[in-house]
Amino acid sequence: MRRRPYFLIFVLILGYAFFYVPIASMIFYSFNKSRLATVWGGFSTEWYGKLLTNQQVLDAAWLSLRIAFLSATIATILGTMAGMALARFSRFRGRVLFSGLVSAPLVMPEVITGISLVLFFIGLEFLIGWPNGRGFTTITLAHITFSLSYVTVVVQSRLASMDRSVEEAAMDLGSKPLRVLFDVTLPIISPAIIAGWLLAFTLSLDDVVITAFTNGPGTTTLPLYIFSKVRLGVTPDMNALATIIVLLVGTGVALAGFLMYRAEKKRERDVQMAIAANK
């Protein structure tokens, strides 16, 4: 019998308090009646009501969702391709440069990516007249560029751990490579592709710095709106907005985690039963 690691339990409790106390405090104060964000003035949901009639917030949220959806979808397609190229084609010209290119945006400071993209877009417009000013298009292109790396990593690692003989078996049974891709490879890695899409979606929905560089007049995404408000200090309506977003995403992730956990448990049970039945 091992001794209980009291020290580790203590650190874990402190660590999770560190993670969650600020968020809990923020949620609590979002129901504060007082206009002063930090002084408790009784329970109220009026800030939530105000938020729903704030056209600026709603516009920003709608813009962010549209950009996130589009950029995540394109980034997932490109990232899946890149992941397959890296995991499946062992030799092609420029492979080293390619793998470097894919991993660079993961570690590149956002200010550098931001400034280089905006200067690039300005230069491009100067030379060929496209993109016409900065806004939806340039933000989306920038988001695709940095989030495709994340999709690539997720897809590549799933492919690397996949048994290649499954693909060979499909080919052996008469499927040409493209058929193998659609019949076998893509269905098997589909959870990774979905995870990659969700990751790209939330990254886009959350991005401040690169968006700040590549946006134009009239394209204020939700994070940019929040950033400009937060600079001025803590307000109860920001608390309410933050609470809605955190709870929405939190519930979504927790639910996804729970469903995955349950599927895994069911799978384990199936395997156990199959072994038991054979005995």
Binding site: D163, S165, V166, E168, A169, A170, M171, D172, L173, G174, S175, K176, D183, V184, P187, I188
Partner: peptide, 20 residues
């Protein structure tokens, strides 16, 4: 001749069953 056109089939060591 590529594997998908050979009248030869293989049983893999890992069985390589399609998990889905």
């Amino acid at each position: 001749i590529p594997p998908y056109e050979r009248p030869v089939n293989m049983m893999f060591q890992s069985y390589a069953l399609f998990p889905h």
